[in-house]
Nucleic acid binder design. Structure first.
Lengths: 157, 157
DNA sequence: TATTGTTATACTCTATAACTATA
DNA sequence: TATAGTTATAGAGTATAACAATA
């Protein structure tokens, strides 16, 4: 379990045998927290956070999203997208281009620096993910990805 | 997909075909956010939040945890446990008992009101979970629970 | 009138350090 | 000297409302 003393956790480990310990929602939250903290750590070397990495990842795919589309897709408030794009623009990773078809809208595009930064950051992020998924076989990883995709995408709200 | 216009999402849905759209970490975060918001909504009718519900769930199992054990198990700072137990105590759901074996430590125990509240809240939370897991068969739910448990519990940090 | 992006603001979370009482 | 609980505070993250430009 733990490479550290293990001693400190002995008392608390017994609490897994409680009502919440078996909850799917609880386990999901725990797994996500673990994944998130490792990804954050990996991205910090590239001056990115999970949020800005997500934005950059969409933009780098040449989807030319408007800020509104980023807001819808990432389920973040438009005002948060403003802050994120501001940050990425200050870093020189993205640019705003005015959409010729709708002059209210800004299309966000990647700079060459942004592409390079994303490639490097993605390598780190995937190494972190590898660590999180380490206990699972290739087959099990596919299963997991399939299952959570169906949870995440079958969004009725 | 969406019961609302559906129209607004058409633009953003295409962004699933980007780099981040396939990331396990991204999907995990999305699934967790969905689960969390539904659980929060369900618990709000019982004057509980996800955090206080978790604490109450451990306490109701008669594990008699100290605040330190709650802090270790839930991976929350001791000061956050203080606030959570304060809240639950004000609601009349838990009591602090001084540990006779170590007078520095407080053991947290459930009151009858706390037990009743938890039973009711758990029913709501499970209904919400049912909604989140709705797309999955019983067999798939077991698989998912098994897989994420191994992610969540095989914690090397 | 409705929508895109923006600004401002308040509220919740989270992290940290310092303090006390016990060990 | 170390640990359990507590308090206070600052930072990050989140949600909301109002506004200007454009549709």
């Amino acid at each position: 379990m733990s490479r550290t003393t293990t001693q400190e956790r002995v008392g608390a480990e017994r609490l897994w045998d409680t009502t919440v310990g078996g909850d799917v929602a609880f386990l999901l939250a725990r797994a996500n927290a673990l994944s998130l903290s490792r990804t954050s750590e990996a991205l910090s070397a590239h001056a990115l956070k999970v949020r800005s990495y997500s934005v950059l990842g969409v933009v780098v795919s040449d989807a030319r999203p408007t800020q509104r589309e980023l807001s819808d897709f990432l389920e973040l408030d438009p005002s948060q997208i403003v802050a994120l794009v501001d940050g990425l623009e200050r870093q020189g990773f993205v640019r705003r281009e005015s959409d010729p078809g709708d002059r209210r809208a800004n299309v966000v595009v990647a700079t060459p620096e942004g592409r390079a930064a994303f490639v490097a950051a993605r390598a780190s992020a995937q190494a972190a993910e590898e660590r999180t998924l380490g206990a699972l076989s290739a087959r099990e990883r596919e299963q997991l990805a399939d299952l959570i995709r169906r949870l995440a995408v079958d969004d009725e709200d």
